[in-house]
């Protein structure tokens, strides 16, 4: 629509949540610009017009002017009250989730977003949503604070370990939108990214059915590989030998690792199990104790599958 500050905002992909915010953003920017230009002109004009001519310049005694004081207190007060009400209204809108919103569960953990859908489908760092439908994300953290932010939708919400929080949006166009973590959470905070992928409603249904009940029966190696992907292990443990935050999985099975405390350990079933459930117990030299314990998150069967998968990465 060609507002002066259009260039500052990303494209609006969820008008139902973004319109209030954008309108107010432009209003404040334009109002501020007018006042700032006024102040600047006054400063420059006074500096030139009243520059010192001689060291014994006489200046008038103007101590105060109550009318002026009241003017420049009351007018800004009214403007800010308008801004407050406008922002408040927009915020109520952000908090008021439509009743028919489609619910998706999101779990933040260092440094990934795990997403699960109504039928058991699971994705990592991809949030698949239907177009033109209000979507509510129910969010929780597994470790420290994170924050879920989609600039295109103008929504953001901290994700906490001891309570559920939520956001909602309604993406109107098929496509992708960037998700950032905006609460500092450690080493790979800036890699804790995800995408919202918007499908046409029918495509979404198909996608959901195809991916339903993931991680179930079948080959333990395949199941293990899927678990490693879904839990974002690769954010820190590469499978191609690239050094990372944690030791690479490549060729790790049966390897003799030297530990931070000087002792050594052979990577076997028990060591892998311990390192998943209680990562801090034995830290490989050269790495920090930053991994989240998976106690209560991965079952014994899951761990067995992961072990089978690890054996195959050579």
């Amino acid at each position: 629509m060609g507002r002066l500050f259009d260039f500052m905002l990303p494209e609006n992909m969820s008008p139902l949540t973004a319109d209030y915010t954008d309108g107010l953003f432009h209003f404040i920017n334009e109002a501020s610009t007018i006042v700032l230009v006024g102040i600047t002109i006054a400063l420059i004009y006074f500096a030139i017009r009243y520059r010192r001519k001689s060291s014994d310049d006489k200046t008038p005694v103007i101590t105060h002017n109550n009318k002026l004081e009241i003017t420049w207190s009351v007018i800004p007060l009214f403007i800010t009250l308008i801004i407050f009400s406008w922002g408040y209204k927009g915020w109520l809108n952000l908090k008021a989730v439509p009743d028919d919103a489609y619910e998706i569960h999101v779990t933040g953990f260092k440094w990934n977003w795990a997403v699960s859908y109504e039928n058991g489908a699971q994705t990592l760092n991809e949030i698949h949503v239907p177009q033109g439908t209000p979507v509510k994300l129910v969010m929780k953290s597994r470790d420290v604070l994170h924050s879920f932010f989609v600039p295109d939708y103008r929504v953001k919400q901290d994700v906490l370990p001891n309570r559920y929080t939520y956001v909602w949006f309604q993406a109107e166009e098929v496509g992708e939108s960037q998700v950032f973590c905006t609460e500092y959470c450690g080493t790979s905070h800036s890699n804790m990214l995800a995408k919202v992928i918007v499908h046409e409603p029918d495509d979404f249904k198909n996608w959901l059915e195809m991916n339903g009940g993931a991680g179930g029966s079948g080959d333990p190696v395949e199941a293990g590989k899927e678990l490693v992907n879904l839990n974002g292990c690769q954010a820190c443990h590469s499978v191609d030998g690239t050094p990372g935050i944690g030791p690479s999985f490549k060729g790790i099975w049966g390897k003799e690792e030297s530990l931070a405390d000087g002792s050594t350990v052979t990577v076997d079933e028990n060591y892998v199990r311990e390192s998943i459930l209680n990562p801090g117990a034995k830290i490989v030299a050269g790495h920090d104790n930053v991994m989240t314990p998976y106690e209560g998150i991965l079952s014994d069967e899951d761990i067995t599958n992961i072990i089978e998968y690890l054996k195959t990465i050579e």
Partner: peptide, 16 residues
């Protein structure tokens, strides 16, 4: 600062 005080806009701009 006024911009950041406005509730709905703050949601978008917070921690950026």
């Amino acid at each position: 600062g006024i911009m950041l005080g406005a509730l709905s806009v703050n949601i978008h701009l917070h921690d950026t």
